[in-house]
Design a protein around this nucleic acid. Structure first.
Lengths: 186, 186
DNA sequence: CCTACCGATCGGTAGG
DNA sequence: CCTACCGATCGGTAGG
């Protein structure tokens, strides 16, 4: 419960703005009571990232991994957009938020975010490769390149929607992704 | 000089992490000496955004605006990537950094960032429209859609490069943008 | 799990 | 432009 609150709070206040005092107020506990669970702010941040990853796996990955190949690639994209649209975290994609905040702050927390990013893009790339093996996408397609372009549109939809509140950002991402995947199939 | 230091600091520590005490240490002035220039932290933040915009206009917009139509669109993209690559700000694109930080924090500072985002995408859209009028891009292309996709790749290159340090992010953006624009020309 | 506290730093002010 | 200060909040600790 503490960590779910922390994960939600971190997408609004940032992983650094997630202070122990604020989390104490939000959960109704005392600062030191909370502190005893984690030992340091950094450990709290790392535990919060673990929790955010579990939520993401349940909400985005698990449903999409029931598909395979091109369908999996498209499901991963669609589940991501849905995840942001449904405001599972009030500040949109937890990892996009954390990546932007921590990109200039070396340390174990940043390293953890980089690792999650690598797992996500690896999953997209693997889906592209499987789709190629199944003959659903052209063999001339560079999996890293296609992943970069699809992920760019996902991240942009997240960013634009948070900044402007305009849900057409999702429509533009869906259209761009559908056309890009279709082009990779031809 | 104060505001140039503030703009650089803000891309590393965030616009909120840009504290008056830290800026005082960085500039060699006293806190209250600095404070007298701005009156409040919010005014300091707004003045810092103005300065970042001036730097961006000089470094990205001015060179690209010497071109017209499709060439302008491509020059805007290329100057953006070069701007990030040359580390004009240590934390990459000032506005991408600020947008991600402020997207969940209502107020005049956030409003200012939203306005700058609108000006930038408006410039890209206008370039697309002019290119269409000149017969350089197909008339069936939706300017907002193409702008969304190009801007997505620019923002992703910025984000991935900051997170991973891998300059191939620029290559992938260049390739994706070139292919996307070429497709819009056919 | 709590109260009570530590030194450091925050945004901001008084007074010069 | 400065020194000296304010109350609030930070991460963290002592002691229970």
């Amino acid at each position: 419960m503490i960590l779910h609150t922390a994960a939600r709070l971190a997408t609004v206040e940032g992983l650094d703005g997630l202070t122990i005092g604020r989390l104490a107020a939000e959960t109704g506990m005392s600062k030191s009571g909370l502190f005893a669970h984690f030992g340091s702010k950094e450990e709290l941040q790392l535990a919060t990232i673990d929790t955010a990853e579990e939520i993401y796996e349940e909400d985005v990955l698990r449903p999409a991994l029931q598909e395979e190949g091109r369908a999996r690639l498209e499901a991963l994209c669609e589940r991501f957009l849905s995840h942001v649209d449904r405001k599972v975290f009030p500040g949109g994609c937890f990892f996009a938020s954390a990546a932007a905040e921590l990109d200039t702050r070396p340390g174990p927390v940043r390293d953890r975010i980089v690792a999650v990013y690598g797992e996500w893009t690896g999953l997209l790339e693997d889906s592209v490769r499987t789709a190629q093996e199944r003959g659903e996408l052209d063999r001339s397609v560079d999996p890293a390149q296609l992943t970069f372009e699809l992920n760019a549109m996902l991240a942009e939809a997240n960013g634009v929607y948070l900044l402007t509140g305009d849900p057409r950002a999702f429509d533009m991402a869906r259209r761009g992704i559908a056309e890009r995947v279709e082009r990779a199939a031809a």
